[in-house]
Amino acid sequence: MVIGLVAASAIVIIVLFIFIKGISPFINDYQGSGNASLLKFITGFTWTAGNYGILGMLINTLYLTLIATLVSSPISILTALFIVRIAPKRLSASIKSVIELLASIPSIIYGLFGMAVINFVVKNIGNLFNIQTAGGTSGLSTVIVLIIMMIPTITMISITSVEAVRQDQIHASLALGATKAQTDFKIVINGAKSGIFAAIILGVGRALGEATAVSMVCGNAITGPNLNLFDITRTLTSTMMLGLHESSGLDYDIRFSVGVVLMFIILLTSVTLNAIKRMLEKK
C-alpha cells in the first residue's frame, strides 16, 4: 500500500509539475521575449521561436497516428492469429520471440533505421512518382516507423487474448461444420476482441507518445497541418524534442505547454477508445 501511495503521488507530482510549468508561458513575463498568447498557441498553425502555434502539429499527430493504427492493427491481429492458431509450434515459438525482441528495441534504434533505410526507400518511392521529398524525411516515413513500432506491442497483447479464447468454444464451432478459417475469424477474433482492442489502445498510446524515432524522420516542418504524406511534418512530441537551444526561458517552457496538450490528447484518446471498447463488449 505504501508503494502504491508513493507511485500514485509520484504521478500526481509529475502531472502537477508539467502543468505548472506548462501554463507559465501564458502568465509570466519573460525578460526580452514577453509571454506567449494562449489563443495563438491553441489556434496557430506555425511554430517558430517567438511564434508558437500547435493546432497544425496537433492535427498531424492525430492524422499520422490514425493511419499507423489503421495499418498496424490488422497486421498485428492476423500475426497473433497466425502465431497462436495456424503456425506449427516451433515456428510460432520463434516468431513470438522475434516479436518480443522487437518490442524491447529502444526507439532510437528504430529512429536510426528510419533515417537510414525508410527515408531512403521513401525518397525513391517519391522519385518514382516524380515527387520531390526532403531526402525522404516525411509524414510517410513517420507513419512507417510508427507502424513498425506499434506492431510488436499490439501483437504481443493480442496473442495473450487470442490464447485465452476457450477451447470448448472452438470445438463447438468446428463441430457445427465451420471450417478452421471461419472458426478463427468468427469465434477466436470475436472472443478476443476486447483484449485486442485493449492492445490497440496501448499501441495508439505508444504512437501518440513516441518522440525520439519520430523526431528523427519527420523533418520538423514549420507550418502545419501537413496532410500530404510526402511532405515533411511535425508532431507534438517532435516539437518538444527538436530545436532546443537553452534550458530556461520562454522557448524552453513552452515545450511544457505542448506536453500538457499531449497528455490531454492521450487521456482523451484513451477515454474515447475505452468507451468504444465497452460498447463493443456489450454487443
Binding site: 470448448d168 468454444q169 470445438h171 463441430a175 457445427l176 461444420g177
Partner: peptide, 19 residues
Amino acid sequence: VELRTKVGMVFQSPNPFPM
C-alpha cells in the same frame, strides 16, 4: 467439415457463443 454438418454434437457443459 461435411461430416460434421451431418453429425452434430452437443458437449458436456453448455458452451453457447458469447453472442
